[in-house]
């Protein structure tokens, strides 16, 4: 399980919100199974990530047994990055996906491609990392530094909301969002924005925790997620509540088919998805034309 959050402070931050939310009937949105007022959700998600940002990798590895790395590799290989690409990775604070894209473009194979194409395309390559949370972006920048990429002209860090992007229409070749769309208040708005910023021919890819359908595995997975994950959460982070949130929010997220139809409704074509590990995660894909 790639994890989105884990923090001791989460519980403290959530409780007041849940109280006020329980009084409201309209404009509520899912924060786990608990109803939360819309404007508070993004703030709440922000708070959660502020405090977990630096532990983030550790938790990702613990919860997914390291698999999130393979899933992200799969995401990027589907993307098929190319020299000169303008790409936007949303909710990409830690830079995980962006670094992979950059590495793929700079790999030997792609160098050859570039030589053949003869322009100086690498200079045009731009990978924008957009995240609502400046702390997550800082984690990403720090990691870029560790990789010697801090001054890399292709990487651009942008603070911004997936529901209201600051990028121009028809300006991107690719759009990715990994383990991010489940945190947002309006999935439809995020999809509409993704569609808006992509060029004709541009690719939308979303990696997200999803619904397991394989029978026996589903039961094991349910057991794992409802019992084991909160327990690990308590053990590692001293915080059962936030893992409860995680598990519940996965159940809340639309099924693969439903989500695919939402992507199609946003105007994408040739919408497909691929389940990984029996649907623990799914990669959804579409093109704008």
């Amino acid at each position: 399980m790639a994890l989105r959050m884990c923090t001791k402070s989460l519980r403290r931050k959530l409780f007041p919100v849940f109280n006020s939310a329980s009084l409201l009937h309209s404009h509520s949105t899912s924060f786990g199974f608990k109803e939360v007022r819309e404007e508070e959700k993004s703030q709440m998600v922000g708070n959660v990530f502020s405090s977990v940002a630096s532990n983030y990798d550790l938790m990702n590895d613990v919860m997914s047994a390291g698999l999130h790395r393979l899933w992200k590799d799969r995401l990027v290989s589907k993307l098929n990055p190319f020299p000169g690409m303008r790409h936007l990775d949303v909710a990409g604070g830690t830079g995980d996906v962006a670094f992979r894209i950059l590495e793929t473009i700079n790999s030997v194979d792609h160098r050859a491609l570039q030589d053949v194409l003869e322009d100086n395309l690498h200079e045009d390559t731009q990978i924008y990392v957009c995240d609502i949370n400046p702390n997550m972006l800082n984690v990403g920048k720090k990691r870029a530094q560790e990789r010697g990429l801090e001054n890399h002209q292709s990487l651009v860090w942008v603070e911004g909301d997936a529901e209201a992007l600051s990028f121009e229409d028809d300006s991107m070749d690719g759009y990715t969002i990994a383990f991010g769309i489940r945190n947002v208040t309006h999935i439809e708005k995020v999809l509409a924005e993704a569609h808006r910023v992509l060029k004709s021919g541009g690719r939308f890819l979303c990696l997200e925790l999803s619904h397991v359908e394989v029978p026996v595995f589903k039961q094991l997975y349910d057991y794992y997620s409802f019992s084991v994950i909160p327990a690990i959460g308590e053990l590692v982070a001293g915080d059962r509540e936030s893992y409860q949130y995680l598990v519940e929010s996965i159940r809340r997220f639309p099924s693969q088919d439903k989500f695919a139809s939402m992507i199609a409704d946003a105007g994408f074509q040739k919408v497909e998805y691929e389940n990984l590990v029996g649907g623990v995660v799914a990669v959804h894909s579409g093109w704008k034309f």
Binding site: K78, M85, G201
Partner: peptide, 22 residues
Amino acid sequence: WTEAAMIAGAREAGVSPSIIGS
């Protein structure tokens, strides 16, 4: 018969080379 030719073709057609992934 290469991806490079396809990238060049996509550019010429005014379509993002991301289409090659399809």
